[in-house]
């Protein structure tokens, strides 16, 4: 059960998309998300899908592999679709007992689902083609100008790094505690929702205690290695903006601005 969770599933490869500066990619994805919320027509979404498709092809990753990232969120997409179909007022197309399917409902449901799918694909492409280190470096550098107004850019990036570093460790530990508690007769699989939630207590308590102990030891180890925030800190890997980054970002801005202006109702 525990092994099915993957976060930041980076796939190393050599492609234009992989080699773009993480800031370029984060910027492009942010713009794309904004565009998805501004564009208001299927034709516009079609264009954005095409744009994303080109990016996926350029990344050299198998299209089916990228599509798989939708799977964990299928339920949410279906839920959104159904909710929109039934809850939007409009001309009734179909009556199912007390529920009615309306034409605007059908339209909005489809529209929202496509929006979600595109959102997931765009962000997945980012994490699939960017290593966690470059991603956190990118976030840190993007936020750096806002340090003056009190945004803890370095601390946020450090937290991301440590979280990514410890996710596998804590998952392993969860698995171990689960097995230990099951050996003592704990039951994590049967019962209703409330019962199951209650059964999680003997799992969560040791897990939390251990996580706090780890945090404490890690902090000591970091201090022993002279960690004192980002004051006077240098980096092993440097981020360099190349011409391809400028071109990619300009192309994205041009394309998305065009689409938004044209297809915004």
């Amino acid at each position: 059960m525990v092994n099915t969770i993957t976060i930041g599933q980076y796939v190393p490869a050599e492609s234009i998309i992989h080699e773009l500066d993480p800031r370029t990619k984060i910027g492009a994805v942010t713009l794309l998300i904004v565009a998805l919320f501004l564009v208001n027509s299927f034709t516009g979404y079609g264009l954005i899908t095409g744009f994303l498709g080109v990016a996926i092809l350029l990344s050299g990753l198998p299209v089916r592999f990228v599509m798989r990232s939708i799977r964990p969120l299928v339920i949410i997409i279906i839920f959104t679709f159904i909710l929109n179909i039934f809850m939007t007022p409009g001309k009734t197309l179909l009556l199912l007992g007390p529920l009615q399917v309306t034409d605007t409902g059908l339209y909005r449901g489809t529209f929202m689902s496509i929006r979600l799918v595109l959102l997931i694909l765009a962000t997945s492409l980012l994490t699939l083609t960017t290593s966690p280190i470059r991603l956190t470096d990118g976030v840190e550098r993007i936020l750096a100008p806002f340090k003056r107004v009190g945004v803890p850019a370095h601390e946020l990036a450090m937290m991301m790094t440590i979280a990514l570093r410890f996710i596998p460790t804590l998952l392993e530990e969860t698995d171990r505690i689960m097995k230990a508690q099951m050996a003592r007769g704990a039951d994590f699989e049967s019962g209703n929702l409330v019962g199951r939630a209650k059964n999680l207590v003997p799992l969560l308590v040791p897990l939390f205690i251990s996580a706090f102990r780890r945090a404490d030891e890690l902090a000591t180890a970091m201090e022993a290695r002279c960690y004192r925030g980002d004051e006077g800190r240098t980096k092993l890997t440097q981020l360099v903006v190349r011409r391809v980054d400028v071109v990619a970002l300009l192309a994205t801005v041009a394309f998305l601005t065009g689409t938004v202006i044209w297809f915004r109702v």
């Binding site: 280190i133 790094t161 990514l164 570093r165 102990r213 780890r214 030891e217 180890a221 022993a224 290695r225």
Partner: peptide, 12 residues
Amino acid sequence: FQNPDNQIVATT
């Protein structure tokens, strides 16, 4: 330190 897991900070 003793616990190898709790002193490695980075992801590589």
